[in-house]
C-alpha cells in the first residue's frame, strides 16, 4: 500500500490482490459459512457518509416509520471502527475523496458499500472540475440506488437487496469499466 500515490492507484491494486470480478455463489459452502452470513446480515451497523440532499433523505428515514430497521437502516454509528456497512449519499468532490477513502480503510472487513443517489453513483448532473464521477473509482461499491434523492421505498429495497447479496456470499468488487478508463 506504500506504492499508492493517488486514489486511482488504490482501485488498480485492489483489483490485483482481491477478486477480479463478482462471484455470486448460490450454494453456501458449509454450515459455518451459512451461520456466519446469517449473523452478519442480522447485525449490520451502518455508517452514513452523507454530504448533501441524500443525507437529509437518509436522516428522515431513520425515524423508523418504514421497515428495514432490522437490516441496519436505523442503527447508525458515526464511527468507522464500529460499523460494517457504509452508505454513501451525496456529491463527493475531489476535496472530500481522501476522507472517504480514509473512512473506508479504517473499517474492518468484512465491509459493504451502498451508493445512494445519482451523485454518488455517477456524478449525477454535475460533470464539472471538482466532482468525482462516481464513487466506484475510489472504493468498491456493492449496490446502487438510483434516484435524486431515492424515495423511502427505494432505500428500503436497497437494504433488502444488500441482505440477499450477503446471504449469497457475494464479495465486493470494482465496476470494471471505470478502472480501465482510469477515471
Amino acid at each position: 500500500m506504500s506504492k499508492v500515490k493517488t486514489i486511482r492507484d488504490f482501485a488498480k491494486i485492489e483489483e490485483e490482490f482481491l477478486l477480479e470480478k463478482l462471484v455470486l455463489t448460490t450454494k453456501a459452502s458449509g454450515l459455518i459459512d451459512w451461520l456466519k452470513r446469517r449473523a452478519q446480515v442480522n447485525s449490520l451497523w451502518t455508517f452514513p457518509f452523507g454530504t448533501s440532499c441524500c443525507a437529509l433523505e437518509f436522516m428522515s428515514l431513520s425515524g423508523g416509520a418504514q421497515s428495514g430497521g432490522e437490516l441496519g437502516k436505523d442503527l447508525t454509528r458515526h464511527s468507522p471502527e464500529r460499523s460494517d456497512l457504509l452508505v454513501v449519499g451525496g456529491t463527493i468532490t475531489e476535496k472530500q475523496a481522501p476522507i472517504l477513502k480514509g473512512v473506508y480503510e479504517k473499517m474492518e472487513s468484512p465491509k459493504w458499500v451502498i451508493a445512494m443517489g445519482a451523485c454518488a453513483a455517477s456524478g449525477g448532473p454535475y460533470n464539472t472540475y471538482s466532482v468525482v464521477q462516481g464513487v466506484s473509482s475510489i472504493i468498491p461499491v456493492d449496490v446502487y440506488i438510483p434516484g435524486c434523492p431515492p424515495t423511502a421505498e427505494a432505500v428500503v429495497a436497497g437494504f433488502h437487496l444488500m441482505k440477499e447479496r450477503i446471504l449469497k456470499g457475494a464479495q465486493r468488487g470494482v465496476r470494471p469499466e471505470t478502472v480501465e478508463k482510469g477515471l
Binding site: T6, E94, P98, N127, T128, S130, V131
Partner: peptide, 17 residues
Amino acid sequence: PLRKDFDIKKRIPLSSP
C-alpha cells in the same frame, strides 16, 4: 476555474488532505 479559458471538465485529484 471561472476564467473563460478554463475547461469545465478538467479534473485535478487530491492526493492527501
